Simulated scan of single mutants.
Amino acid sequence: MLRSCLSLLALCFLIPLHAADLSIDTGHGTRVWTTAQLLARPDAQHISIPADVAFRRDMQYRAVPLTALLPALKTQDRLQFVAKDGFSVDLPASLILNHAGAEAWLAVEDPEHPWPALPDNKGDAGPFYVVWTHPASAQVSTEQWPYQLVRIQLTQSVATRFPATAPEATLPADSPVRRGYQVFQRTCFACHTLNGQGDSHLGPDLNIPHSPTEYLGDDTLRAFIRNPQSLRRWPEAKMFGFPTQESLSDADLTALLAYLHYMARHKVIP
């Protein structure tokens, strides 16, 4: 019995704790990549990311160009990135295929050289993490750096999948509410639901039973979105905030508030 226990314990030390599988489906069947397979790809290379979004410092990664893992991706496609902690974010293929100079990479954690823990007790970023070189050139937001990935898959538009989050079709095309809806999808929908709809439940619903616009003034809400700790000090909080113009411009923040005010008048009880 003792020998069996010791054998199992030894096996645990031999198995890389951070090795994992990543499932990718772009509409042509699911492909599962292992950590070892990704690290061994001929297009894997070492890249440097200054001021990494998750780690908040310069980082070095072994990474694969994301487009190389997404065969036959079309500009009009949308992809859903799902993390093991429930985080889920949709990215338009047009962002990944952009010609502005930003490039998306799949960083792969080497089990023999694990990444450090995330700051503020937020756990691990591995085993797979989408990082960007030159993100500002394509206005890549902080929420578009998904980590702890387990799955990437083709999806439909947010309005199609979750109609209770969409403004009414009668709104003008240039309405700030429509712009705010796009900002909401890029910045908030990765962690929150709205009107009970959405993939991720890391944060509370932003309309049911109350919209934050109903209990916070716009100035306070702006400050909270920029820096959540400015309202309540909570070391375990997962929301990073959007402190810079690059992560969320003032104009986009104004549009986001317009969308939240609008949706507060269009509640759908789940």
Rank of each mutant, 00 (worst) to 15 (best):
S4H: 15
S7I: 07
L9A: 00
L9V: 15
A10Y: 07
L11R: 07
L14P: 00
L17I: 07
H18T: 01
A19I: 08
D21Y: 04
D21W: 09
L22A: 10
I24K: 06
D25F: 02
D25P: 03
G27N: 10
G29H: 13
T30M: 09
V32G: 01
T35I: 04
T35E: 12
R41K: 11
R41C: 09
P42S: 14
A44C: 07
Q45G: 07
Q45N: 06
H46F: 04
S48N: 14
P50Q: 12
P50S: 11
P50Y: 08
A51S: 14
D52N: 11
D52K: 13
A54V: 15
F55A: 12
M59L: 11
M59Y: 13
L66K: 03
T67D: 11
P71C: 07
P71N: 14
A72H: 03
K74H: 12
T75V: 12
L79S: 06
Q80C: 02
A83N: 10
K84V: 10
G86N: 10
G86Q: 14
F87V: 12
V89Y: 00
V89E: 05
L91W: 14
L91P: 12
P92N: 04
P92F: 05
S94T: 13
L97H: 05
N98E: 03
H99V: 04
H99R: 08
G101H: 11
E103D: 10
L106D: 00
H113L: 15
W115A: 11
W115N: 11
A117W: 05
L118H: 15
D120C: 01
D120Y: 01
N121E: 12
K122D: 14
F128D: 13
T133A: 04
H134C: 05
V140N: 00
V140Y: 07
S141C: 12
E143P: 00
E143M: 11
E143K: 04
W145L: 07
P146D: 10
L149G: 15
R151T: 01
R151W: 00
T155S: 07
T155L: 07
Q156D: 04
T160A: 07
T165N: 13
T165P: 08
A166D: 06
A166F: 02
T170F: 00
L171K: 09
L171M: 09
A173F: 03
S175T: 14
P176M: 14
R179W: 08
G180W: 14
Q182T: 11
Q185D: 04
Q185S: 01
R186I: 12
A190P: 05
C191E: 10
N195S: 00
G196L: 15
L202V: 13
G203V: 14
L206K: 01
N207Q: 11
I208G: 01
I208N: 02
I208Y: 02
I208V: 08
H210P: 02
S211G: 00
P212T: 11
P212N: 03
T213E: 02
E214V: 00
D219P: 01
T220I: 07
T220Y: 08
L221E: 02
R222F: 05
I225L: 12
R226L: 02
R226F: 01
P228D: 04
R232G: 01
R232M: 02
R233V: 03
K238V: 15
K238G: 13
G241Y: 06
P243N: 09
T244Y: 01
Q245F: 13
D250M: 05
A251V: 15
A258W: 14
L260M: 14
L260D: 12
H261G: 13
H261F: 15
Y262K: 06
